[in-house]
Simulated assay, not measured.
Amino acid sequence: MPRHYVMCPPRHFAVDYAINPWMDPTVPVDPERAMRQWTELRDTYRRLGHQVEEVEPQPGLPDMVFAANSGTVVEGRVLGAKFATRERAAEAEHFRRWFLEHGFQDVTMPQETNEAEGDFAWTGRLLLAGTGFRTDPRAHAEAQEILGVPVISLRLVDPRYYHLDTALFVLSEADDEQPAQIAYYPDAFSPGSQRVLRRLFPDAVLADAADAECFGLNAVSDGRHVILPVEATALAEKVAARGYEPVFVDISELRKAGGGPKCCTMEIRK
């Protein structure tokens, strides 16, 4: 099925501060290369038949390119974001306005800190919800109340994988005929959360450390194609063995800020 994505061009992309272990302001950043990589990601979605809408980037918000962190949309209901860091706090209001300007009527801004699809992954029946570094665990109950879907809490324990979407992605959503299928990196999660994932998804694709380190789990799947970083070769082989088609993109410049394909991509589910 065609997907509907929201993205934000990295027109003001920079690494001027460090709010995650991947960011180093002393390492040079090439904004033009970041824009080329982002454009290729956007165009890849369109070549695959998906709709992409764009939010206007704002000066002084270099991480606004990571649109996934600014909203969670399930069945047309929108739960906005409340960022954990002051550097990104202003992004939430720009995305709230975008939703309202584009006809979304059920838009709720959270009371608790949540970084949207950075820590929320919809499986078709359950919302997997990460915590440990950014999203407050109280936001999980808030998401359940606002979105009206069951929420499963998962604790992240490795600061390199500070968002759920750096350690797990949904390969295919559940439907009437089959359960959801996911891929994840076990060592990013607490022992208890690993047990929960094994119980819920016994047939999951398990990534190794090398694929996690190149942001291979920060992938986007439309149920057939899996868009992932060019370096994630072992993970690509594993998803191909399950019948999916890997599609490689270069996100090396964007990764300097701790982002990859999924970070750049918010999905609209109506």
Rank of each mutant, 00 (worst) to 15 (best):
R88T: 01
L100E: 15
A143D: 00
R42D: 06
V157K: 04
G259Y: 09
H12R: 11
E142Q: 12
P10V: 08
P137Y: 10
G49C: 08
R242Q: 14
S193H: 09
M23C: 14
Q37F: 01
E40V: 09
S70Q: 01
V149E: 06
A232W: 06
Q51G: 04
S252T: 12
G124W: 13
P25R: 04
D203C: 09
G71M: 05
G243M: 11
Y184E: 02
G49P: 01
I268V: 13
Q194R: 15
D203S: 10
A68V: 04
T265I: 08
R77E: 11
A209T: 05
C214M: 04
V149K: 15
E177D: 11
C214F: 04
S221G: 06
T108Q: 12
I251S: 06
D136G: 01
F169D: 02
I251Y: 02
A90R: 04
L100R: 15
K262I: 05
P28F: 05
L48C: 04
R269T: 09
T26L: 09
A207R: 01
D203E: 15
A18D: 02
T108S: 14
L41P: 06
I152S: 01
H12L: 07
A212H: 15
R198I: 00
R33K: 14
Y185W: 08
A68Q: 00
R155C: 12
R86M: 10
C8T: 15
I152E: 09
M1A: 13
V239N: 03
F248M: 13
D222C: 11
D30N: 13
S70R: 01
P2E: 05
A89I: 00
D203K: 14
P10C: 07
R199C: 09
A204N: 11
Y45F: 15
A212F: 07
D24C: 09
E177H: 14
R242D: 02
R199F: 13
T233R: 14
L254W: 12
A241R: 15
L206C: 01
M23P: 11
D119E: 06
V55R: 06
A67L: 08
